[in-house]
């Protein structure tokens, strides 16, 4: 248990810092909306990490699921409905349905095919969103108001929204971790390590993977609905494939193994992007090479930094002498 606690120390510290942030000088509107974005993308990244790290399914169309969630909010808003009790479950269900249908086709393939097909479906969602001129088309859609809860406009308070996002992020992380640790998760991981062997023991990977894919879609749908509320604006750019690539980068940068890596990755990337884009006009000229370098050299991601430095320290001559003494 203490070992588990130690391996989760970094993300737990991050969550605590997020809880304390509004009271430590990050309470203004700009900082809060930035942190909310990071936490929401963190949820989507955790669900993607469940697919990549847990099931070995490298999806490059994950932004589409978020987009389906966000556009459900938009569609309800355009119809004059902004009751959260209706909108949020609908957004989650719509994203789950989209994931189920596209997953049913994509999961028939594997490896590189799977990457390309999820990318293609993501792009399909992108073009579909751009062509709905009644929902803003290419220009995007500005929501009339944030979603209500039983008639109260509780989400309008930035602080409430901040803690709602934080609570949901923690819940998503916990839920997905429990799922991975359960029997269901063990089958997923077994099918990732060795599909033949999993089949030989009597488990067909396909239905398990489809359920995981649908669940990840549902979580991303929730994230999308929250993101629509956070910015009160939705455009097809939300579904673009660069967004999917970014989510994947969050997962890899944080570290693929434990799901909490995705949270660290999301925080790091959202803050890094914000910082760089203030610093430079063409900030991607720095961000892009950083991405390449981190893939080439940072094996195991940020979450692996602590144990790795500890191992490296142990190899240094003076610490070794201390250990012997």
């Amino acid at each position: 248990m203490s070992g588990q606690l130690r391996s989760h120390s970094l993300p737990l510290a991050a969550l605590l810092a997020l809880a304390a942030a509004p009271f430590l000088g990050f309470g203004d509107g700009f900082a809060l909306s930035l942190l909310a974005r990071a936490m929401i993308l963190g949820m989507a990244a955790v669900s993607l990490s469940l697919l990549i790290g847990g099931a070995g399914l490298v999806s490059l169309g994950h932004a589409a699921m978020m987009g389906v969630g966000a556009y459900t909010v938009v569609a309800f808003d355009a119809a004059g409905v902004s009751e959260g009790v209706i909108v949020f479950p609908a957004a989650i269900a719509a994203a789950a349905l989209f994931a189920f249908v596209t997953g049913a086709v994509s999961l028939r393939t594997s490896g590189v095919h799977f990457i390309m097909i999820t990318l293609a479906f993501g792009q399909m969602a992108f073009f579909t969103a751009s062509s709905f001129s009644s929902l803003g088309g290419d220009d995007g859609y500005t929501l009339y108001a944030r979603t209500e809860w039983l008639g109260t406009r509780i989400l309008d308070s930035r602080l409430t929204f901040h803690f709602l996002c934080l609570a949901l992020l923690a819940l998503v992380w916990l839920g997905c971790s429990l799922l991975l640790a359960s029997r269901f998760g063990r089958v997923l991981r077994a099918a990732k390590e060795n599909p033949q062997r999993a089949q030989a023991v009597g488990f067909q990977p396909y239905p398990y993977r489809l359920v995981a894919y649908t669940l990840a879609g549902a979580v991303s749908g929730l994230a999308g609905a929250l993101l629509a509320n956070a910015s009160e604006f939705v455009s097809p750019a939300l579904l673009s494939w660069t967004r999917s690539g970014e989510l994947m980068f969050m997962v890899i940068l944080g570290g693929v193994g434990p799901l909490s890596g995705a949270i660290l990755g999301a925080l790091t990337i959202v803050l890094l992007e914000e910082w760089l884009s203030h610093l430079l006009v063409y900030w991607r000229l720095v961000f892009g090479p950083l991405l390449v370098l981190s893939v080439l050299f940072l094996h195991g991601g940020l979450i692996g930094v602590i144990p790795r430095t500890r191992a490296a320290l142990r190899l240094l001559p003076w610490t070794r002498r201390n250990a012997n003494a």
Binding site: V58, G245, M248, F249, I252, R284, L285, G288, L291, V295
Partner: peptide
Amino acid sequence: LSQVLATFGVILT
């Protein structure tokens, strides 16, 4: 996975 990400970084750059 690494190939996708690294080449994605090249695109951004």
